[in-house]
């Protein structure tokens, strides 16, 4: 990663999962904290205490959640310590991967969905 004060060079990170090199800054000026290609993240922030985490494990996306007022968020789980984190879906994330994750519960429903047709 390049020096943050050097504005001529864009700082990038390499995805812990698919090794894609992605710029930290997004087009709309925000900060990215998951890979746009595979949605994986890295456990650098401790969710319980709020400080930096010593785990640094890879975080896999497990669900797409929608708060009552707000846009889609992706829920991550750390593969090392099982901690959960929540992160907003960005404009340039891979839309097919996001959509696959959103409708994944419907692929294996725990009850027959035909019963809802009569409601």
């Amino acid at each position: 990663m390049s020096h943050p004060r050097n504005t001529l060079r864009t700082s990038t990170f390499s995805c812990t999962w698919c090794r894609v090199s992605v710029p930290v800054a997004t087009a709309d000026g925000g900060q990215r904290n998951h890979c746009p290609a595979c949605l994986h993240s890295r456990h650098v922030l401790d969710q319980v205490t709020g400080g930096p985490s010593t785990c640094l494990g890879a975080m896999s996306p497990i669900a797409i959640a929608v708060p009552r007022a707000g846009d889609w968020t992706v829920v991550h789980r750390c593969v090392r310590c099982d901690e959960l984190a929540c992160d907003a879906v960005r404009e340039d994330d891979n839309q097919l991967v996001v959509m696959r994750m959103a409708v994944r519960p419907l692929a294996q429903p725990p009850f027959p969905l035909e019963a809802f047709g009569t409601l």
Binding site: A63, A65, V66, A107, Q108
Partner: peptide, 9 residues
Amino acid sequence: LGVSVRPDG
């Protein structure tokens, strides 16, 4: 908040 699916379904 949402539903997640484990690998075993």
